[in-house]
Structures are given as C-alpha cells and as structure tokens.
Amino acid sequence: MSAEAQGHATGVEPSGEFGVFVFLVSEGLLFSALILGYLVARLAPGADFAAGSRELSLPLGTLNTAVLLSSSFCIALATIWGSERSRWARLAALATVALGIVFLCIKGYEYFEEAQKGLLPFRDMSDRYPKAEPQHLRLFFDVYLALTGTHALHVISGIGLVGGIALFWRRLARPAHTLKLAALYWHFIDVIWVFLFPLLYLAR
C-alpha cells in the first residue's frame, strides 16, 4: 500500500500516528499489568502498604511529578513551535530532555536515600523492623522498585528519542513531525507517572 493510501477514509493522515498509538497500547498494557500486580499485593491480607508509602519522600515525589508535568508542557510547546517552523522548537525539545534528566537525578537520589535506610534493594528487613512484619514492607519496596524502575527505563529511552531528534534536527526530513510522534511517547510516560505517584507516594 502506498504511503498516501494508508489511513484512507479513516480520518488518519498517513503520518505514523496510528502506529505510535498501537505501540502505546502495548506499553499501556505492560504498565497496567504491573499496576495490577501492585493492587493484588496491596489487597493481600495483612499487607501494610501504608507503612511502605510513609517511608517514601513525599516532597521529592511531588517535586518529581511537577518536573515531569513541566517536561510534558515543554514538549507540547516544542510541537507547537515545530509546526510553525520556529527555531524555539529545538530549544524546547532540549529543555524537555533536561527536565527528563532532572527527573532521573531526583529519582536516583531517592533510591540512594532508600538504600541508605536499608529499604532497597531486595533486603531482608527483619533486623530493622523486628516488630512490623517486615515481609509486608519488603513486598511494597519490591513492587515500588519494579514500577518506578520500569518507568525510569522509559524515561531514559524518551530522553534518547527526544534528545536524538533535537541533536539531528537539521538532518531529519521532517523534524517537526518526528518530534510530534516522539511527544506522544513522552506524554504517555507522563500519564503513567500520574498513576504511579498516588499509588506509591500517597497510599499513607
């Protein structure tokens, strides 16, 4: 099928947008399954997820959410400016990458703090919480690491994608269009965090 004929009479421009959404559906199902694992663990009898959640840093989690929301705003601006062929598009894409790196740094610092407290990774915490049924806290932190770790891997690939487009802007045939498709992925990562943040940090 020729590129022009693709998406004919479906309301979709032959743009790759549909392909990106199909990919995002598979990604959505991956995270849905992980979050379902979280819910099943949380609903298990005796599981004390509130105790685990209280061990996380709410200020850092909130800050990180704000950083990721700002990065989504940045890449939204980049797509608007890209469609207007403004030179600001590339700068806004670079700012998005910078905010993504800030997000990872804060997340990394949180992991570091939790490791200092003996909560990560995969530690037996019976010495630290002799009375508080540590296996339930352990369960929370295993799920926490799986969810935030998978999300962080997606942020890293998003940084590579958007950063690559910004760096090779002049060599791309349709940079603004490629950026628009990458922006869909970036917004998707943001949506996932929007659900992870209350599940992990606000279950107090």
Binding site: G7, T10, G11, V12, E17, F18, F21, V22, L24, V25, G28, L29, S72, A76, A183, L184, H187, F188, D190, V191, V194
Partner: peptide, 22 residues
C-alpha cells in the same frame, strides 16, 4: 494530558478506537 497534549480531542476514528481498545 490525553485530550490536549496528545490531541485525542481532535484525533480521527482509528486513533480513538485504538485508545478505546486499550
């Protein structure tokens, strides 16, 4: 985020259907 940033408000039938499938 979906409606405004990801343009779902103005997307065609195929994309809306894809999201509905999810």
């Amino acid at each position: 985020i979906g409606m405004v940033f990801m343009h779902l408000r103005r997307s065609g039938l195929l994309v809306s259907l894809t999201v509905a499938v999810l």
